Simulated scan of single mutants.
Amino acid sequence: MSEAEKFQKYLGTQLVDHLGEGYIFLRSKLELRQKGKESSNVIVLAGSNKYSPDVSVSFYVGRHFEEIKKVEKALGLEPMPYHIQQYSPNLQNMINHPNIGARHTWRININNPPESFPEEMCTAIRQISEPFFERFDTLESSRDALAINDSWCFGGPAFWRSLLLFDAALDDIHHFSKWATHLNSVEREQAELLLARYKEI
């Protein structure tokens, strides 16, 4: 394990203490998770270790839905840590986000990290994630955002598979079929194959 990886795992243990409120830290995935009955809030640590000991630190924010997990399992798909997500450096592009000027990425010397860094990063996680979780609190609101390529999440044609899973969980495959007419020929062929598998379960 590299020193940068050790730092990320250390950082996760510090962040989970600051976040509290039922968060757990999954060390192997660098994932902070707050589990709910129907969905979970997820933070995944990310960044670049290319210039270690100076590393960049950022994070993904996402929501994981239990109903979609069931669809993934039925289709034999690799489970995703989250079903709708955003990357913290994209904060500036999230139209009308209330904290659009907040800090969202850092460069840290892992041999001498500031003692206050976990608390500072925790503040940024809250500023970015809380409005995100409020906006995407249901299957329906998340599905609709993916379909229109909402600036608050990764969506649009590149994420057709995610939209299909949402529509399957909502029992609204007709919505996906209508939306998929805008895909290119390769994406549409792949979507048809997955749709065929879904119709067999």
Rank of each mutant, 00 (worst) to 15 (best):
L30V: 14
E31T: 09
Q34K: 14
Q34W: 07
K35D: 13
K37Q: 08
S40R: 10
N41K: 13
V42D: 05
I43F: 03
V44S: 03
L45H: 08
L45W: 03
A46K: 15
K50Y: 12
Y51D: 09
Y51S: 05
Y51Q: 08
Y51T: 07
S52G: 11
P53Y: 10
S56N: 03
V57I: 15
S58K: 08
R63S: 07
H64A: 09
H64T: 07
F65Q: 01
E67Q: 15
I68R: 00
K69L: 05
K69Q: 05
K70G: 12
K73C: 03
P79D: 00
M80G: 02
Y82P: 01
I84F: 11
I84T: 01
Q85Y: 10
Q86V: 02
M94W: 11
M94E: 03
M94Q: 13
H97R: 00
R103F: 01
R103M: 11
H104R: 09
T105K: 15
T105V: 12
R107E: 13
I108Y: 00
P114M: 14
P114A: 15
P114I: 08
E115K: 14
S116H: 12
S116V: 13
P118F: 03
M121F: 08
I125V: 08
I125H: 02
R126V: 08
S129D: 10
E130L: 06
E130C: 01
F132C: 09
F132P: 03
F133L: 02
D137I: 11
D137M: 09
D137T: 13
T138S: 14
T138D: 13
E140C: 10
S142Y: 14
R143F: 15
L146A: 01
L146G: 07
N149P: 00
C153M: 04
F154Q: 11
G156V: 04
